[in-house]
């Protein structure tokens, strides 16, 4: 036998990267895993609904057909949840006799579109401005700080309403309709995404700027500079990964703000108009509830609650897991 005996191959030794460390901590919280699973389920539903829309085309999708048109015998349009026409009827029929189940599942698609696109919008604006301001300092920083303190000074709801209102009726709406983009993303949805993007980037920008200002003074950044790396390379390869946890956490916050705003904007008549969104179903419920028709509200409100809860909970757990100061 030769003297050296291998203790184990490299693959057997657990490599502790920050990402794995965070996942290890997240895994400890069973609730977080449960809600992560719930979020994944919602994502699959939304994906399925999107595939369904692509397959059925724009003509007359099944979520906009009444169950009578589909050949089921119902006497009234507003039918409470029933096992007839299973599974289409389990959440009841809405005021047009359409399946609440199908519409609510489509609503998940709209919620994800609004949430993901809105959060992406705000991340792109907030992250890039925050990186620029924190890294370059000087007049760039002064300008960015001025812009975000101005935007943050307008009461959020007021800015959101005013923007939505302007986008809806100005020349902009006409240009958008003519551009052909509306075939992909309806004007109402586009409005909401724009409004969310334009109003919710400030928090992230502020956080990223502060963190970048700290990180850029660290030794490894100086080392990179000594090696002659350019600003862009330092910014994107060396600084960005170290502030990216802020972006991940912010994604969950903005996602929630976006789907909640969709409900309010749609209720006020400046949001989604064509597609079946949760906001729309909740808005209709204003008149339906007083007639004792509770199931559209219960379905849409319940799913909205579950999705928001799962994102909120996972976001909280992620924040703790990604925080290197909290050692478990």
């Amino acid at each position: 036998m030769s003297g050296v005996e291998a203790v184990g191959s490299v693959s057997e030794i657990e490599v502790r990267t920050p990402g794995r460390e965070a996942w290890r901590r997240l895994r400890k919280d069973r609730f977080a895993l449960f809600f992560l699973g719930m979020f994944a389920a919602f994502f699959l539903i939304a994906l399925g609904a999107q595939v369904d829309v692509l397959l059925e085309g724009r003509g007359n999708p099944s979520y906009s057909k009444s169950l009578m048109e589909m050949g089921y015998a119902f006497e009234e349009t507003h039918h409470p949840p029933t096992f007839e026409a299973f599974p289409l009827g389990i959440l009841g029929l809405d005021w047009n006799g359409r399946s609440v189940l199908l519409r609510v599942l489509q609503g998940a698609r709209i919620a994800f579109m609004v949430g993901v696109l809105g959060a992406l919008c705000s991340i792109v604006i907030g992250m890039s401005l925050g990186l620029l301001a924190g890294f370059f300092g000087g007049w760039v920083d002064a300008l960015v700080v001025y812009v975000y303190s101005t935007v943050a000074s307008i009461p959020y709801l007021l800015l959101m309403l005013a923007l939505a209102f302007v986008l809806k009726q100005g020349d902009f709406a006409r240009i958008y309709r003519e551009s052909g983009l509306s075939g992909f993303l309806s004007l109402g949805l586009f409005n909401i995404v724009c409004v969310i993007g334009a109003t919710s980037w400030v928090t992230l920008c502020r956080l990223v700027r502060g963190e970048v200002m700290k990180v850029r003074e660290l030794d490894y950044v100086n080392a990179a500079r000594c090696l002659g790396f350019g600003n862009l390379r330092i910014l994107f390869r060396h600084i960005l990964p170290n502030v990216f946890h802020l972006v991940i956490i912010n994604f969950s916050l903005t996602f929630v703000i976006a789907i909640k705003s969709e409900v309010i904007l749609t209720f006020l008549g400046v949001g989604v108009d064509k597609e079946p969104s949760w906001g729309q179903m909740i808005a209709y419920a204003k008149n339906e509830l007083m007639q004792g028709i509770w199931w559209p509200l219960a379905s849409a409100g319940g799913l909205l609650f579950l999705l928001t809860l799962s994102v909120n909970y996972v976001g909280d757990a992620l924040r703790d897991a990604l925080d290197p100061k909290l050692k478990h």
Binding site: V263, A285, M290, T308, L309
Partner: peptide
């Protein structure tokens, strides 16, 4: 803390609709 997360996860519109319907109507 869990109830607080649950509470903020409900849409404000749902709060208003349900409580107005239940408590007032």
């Amino acid at each position: 803390t869990f109830l607080a997360i649950g509470g903020i996860s409900i849409s404000s519109l749902v709060y208003i609709l349900v409580l107005q319907w239940l408590l007032a109507d």
